[in-house]
Design a protein around this nucleic acid. Structure first.
Lengths: 243, 243
DNA sequence: ACCCGACAGGTTGTTTTACCAAGTTTGAGC
DNA sequence: GCTCAAACTTGGTAAAACAACCTGTCGGGT
């Protein structure tokens, strides 16, 4: 009676083949053993082998060609690029993890762009929570969070205290909403006098403005995050496959 | 004798179920018919049904719960957001599709950032091809393409003529290289005097600079694309799932 | 009357055996 | 040298069985 559940056979096969590719046993460009050979070596049936190879192909480790065989591509290089999405971190990790100070928390009239992203009438009101994040004691990013009023009620976001929990978990626990994906808009503009002062940046350096509209699986907007970054100190990096 | 190859049954099932979800026959949140019911209705075997449902789950249309059934999530909202990646279009569609003029084509010393992205020594030389893209007769974007010299030899990129073919196809046909993914860096800065003049923009408006390092499957950099956008006229949009 | 556990019948997840189709390579035979 | 069939490869379909999980119902016990 094993309390630990063993992974299914096809998943074990996936891991075994990944290890062999990473260790160089299977060189990139070479031909992988055929289905029949893998069946003989691992003692499993053909559908099991096929299931494992399908996973590897979908993850980009190998590619297959009908009639010829399956070729090793190597460890997918995309996985090595850590996607550095600014909005993500502030939604999942607790505010107490990133030092900073709360500069605003209360109901405000929505800017046009945020109203559009939230799918509400312009000038309607929503809850705004804005933090100035510091790194090494210096202010570096201005992070704003807009929530519809009905979503902010009954949460700890309206308090002036830093959240000891990720915003994503907090909203799921209190309001039952589930984040699914983010639509991101990136623009650049000159800082206002107030922003330049808060961020301690020269007035002739542009700001990178990242707007992230967080939506549920049906596409309904839940929250909008805005991250303002002085462009001389930050840049955004990301990776994606060529279609 | 059908010359057209019919799609496999599981793919037909995928399409049929997608249509029903989109048309509202299967409402989001509701329970999908069980495997047994789908087998009876479509007259296929269980592995075929399971294969179709696996595709739908991986694409985000449904989610499954062992012991209960499969629930409709709806058309994945991510698919509705057209990913608007600036670098992509210039790599795949022919230059003759986007009006503009070639402003530079020849070997130059690499800027530091591009040399880093191409994984070469700083100040080494590479081929630069720069185009000023116009929309509605107005200049809007400055697109630069850097290639290692050995990759530009024997291609039509060194000529002053617009390519009647996508760069991706051209390089694959002539040099046998295959684009796999792009590592993208986004920054903002003030335009130089020359850039402001070429783009016909005010000097106090920042530029969005998008650097895209195109790599093959092993992560080796092939080409670097730079797109310069006046920030008052363009913004970048993208969507990605919450992990 | 109420509670709780056993059990039956539903669901999806995993594995096996079997067969046919389609693409590629090889080599035997002409 | 050429043709073509055989033998390899992966892709797809069918039928069956077992395991794991959920949800009722039907008991028996308190």
């Amino acid at each position: 009676m094993s309390l630990e559940s063993v992974p299914p056979k096809y998943a074990q096969l996936v891991q075994a083949l990944q290890r062999r590719i990473e260790s160089g046993t299977y060189q990139p460009g070479s031909l992988l053993p055929s289905e029949h050979q893998l069946i003989a070596e691992f003692g499993v049936s053909r559908p099991t082998v096929v299931a494992a190879l399908r996973v590897l192909r979908e993850q980009g480790w190998i590619e297959s060609q009908q009639g010829k065989g399956r070729f090793v591509r190597g460890r997918p290089a995309m996985a090595a690029v850590e996607s550095n999405r600014r909005g993500q971190a502030y939604l999942t990790s607790p505010e107490t993890d990133s030092p900073g100070e709360l500069v605003e928390a209360g109901a405000v009239a929505l800017p046009n762009r945020v109203a559009t992203l939230l799918d509400t009438q312009p000038k309607s009101r929503a809850f705004l929570r804005r933090r100035l994040v510091t790194r090494d004691g210096e202010p570096t990013e201005l992070v704003s969070l807009w929530l519809p009023l009905e979503l902010s009620e009954g949460t700890d976001l309206t308090s002036g205290e830093p959240l000891p929990q990720g915003i994503r978990e907090h909203l799921k626990a209190r309001k039952g909403v589930r984040f699914d994906h983010i639509v991101e808009q990136i623009t650049a503009r000159m800082p206002t006098a107030g922003e330049a002062k808060q961020l301690g940046m020269p007035k002739n350096v542009p700001l990178l403005a990242v707007f992230g509209a967080v939506r549920d699986a049906s596409g309904r907007p839940l929250v909008v995050v805005e991250v303002l970054l002085p462009a001389d100190r930050h840049e955004l990096e990301d990776a994606y496959p060529v279609t």
